[in-house]
């Protein structure tokens, strides 16, 4: 172990045209180009993807799970944002 570790990258894969990229895991690579190649070998051996994104893990910023209750609170009491909040008479179709 005389060298430092290759940086860690997060891998996102678009499984088919029309779908969004989805996080599938991570891997180590020296640079972005190698990360894409390694991601192909590690995560798409069975045609799981047609497009790969890689992002160095250190560049990901995440919300804090400990603050989740307070953080998502504002959405919690606004039930009127959902269509099921509204009463629609049975006679009304297609709404």
């Amino acid at each position: 172990m005389n060298t430092k570790e290759w940086p860690l990258w997060e891998v996102f894969i678009r499984s088919k045209q029309g779908l969004d990229h989805k996080h599938v895991g991570s891997l180590h690579a020296a640079d972005a180009e190698m990360a894409v190649q390694n991601a192909r070998d590690v995560y798409t051996r069975r045609m799981e993807g047609i497009s790969i994104w890689v992002v160095e893990s250190k560049h990901i910023h995440a919300s804090n799970p400990d603050d989740a209750t307070a953080f998502y609170e504002p959405a919690n009491d606004k039930v009127y944002r959902h269509p099921t909040f509204y009463e629609v008479p049975a006679e009304i179709k297609n709404m």
Partner: peptide, 12 residues
Amino acid sequence: GAWVREAALAHA
């Protein structure tokens, strides 16, 4: 394989 890992890092 150590030299490969070192070389890749140096190249990057």
